[in-house]
Simulated scan of single mutants.
Amino acid sequence: MGEAYKLDCDSCVFTKNIFVGFGFSYMSLESIASFVQDTVLKRRIGEFIGNPSTRNDAYDALYVCPVCQAIRNELFIEMISDSSQYKISYACPRCASVMEQEHIENNVPAHLSCPACEKGKLKATFYMDWD
């Protein structure tokens, strides 16, 4: 099951809702392929579907740019088979740096800087479970 959080800056009005974790739609590669919009990722998933040696992990994750603090809430997916492997990565939409996955906890001040004002820190507040 996944969790939804609201990120709030302690210095400005920045707020963002994010969804992290595992939902029912991530139980199979076929299901993931049905909602993925990126054609390159869809093709890569297709390369692993049907291979009995394939193992995969997929969930919604929070990604943060280490350079400019931009935030993305995106699918994490890793697929490994006897003959191939793939792990998704994201480029920052602002500065094109490779984004890093970040873990958050309810009501724990995150060590993330605000992407809007760059002075404040973000706090994550849980508001619902999702599946």
Rank of each mutant, 00 (worst) to 15 (best):
M79W: 05
E100K: 15
C95D: 14
N17H: 15
A96P: 01
P66H: 04
I104T: 04
F126A: 02
A58D: 00
E100H: 15
R72C: 09
M1V: 12
C9N: 07
G2W: 00
A33E: 11
C65V: 04
A124L: 04
P93I: 01
L75P: 01
S84I: 03
M99W: 06
R44I: 15
S53V: 02
R94Y: 02
A33N: 11
A70G: 03
F76L: 06
E74N: 14
F35L: 07
S25F: 06
L112T: 05
C68K: 01
F14P: 08
L75E: 03
E30Q: 10
E74K: 15
V108H: 11
F19W: 06
D60A: 12
S81D: 03
A96N: 15
V13I: 03
K119V: 14
A70I: 00
Y5A: 06
I77M: 04
V98R: 15
F35E: 07
C117H: 06
G2Q: 09
I49H: 04
I71D: 08
T15F: 10
T15L: 05
Y86T: 01
A58C: 03
G23Q: 11
C12M: 03
D8C: 08
K123N: 12
L75A: 04
S83L: 10
E3M: 15
C114T: 11
E47G: 03
M128Q: 13
T54M: 09
W130N: 09
H111C: 13
Q37Y: 07
F24G: 08
Q69H: 15
Y86E: 07
K119Q: 11
I104L: 12
F35I: 05
Y127K: 02
Q85N: 13
E30I: 09
T125P: 01
T15C: 10
A116Y: 14
I80G: 01
C9S: 08
A58G: 00
D131F: 10
F35T: 06
V108A: 04
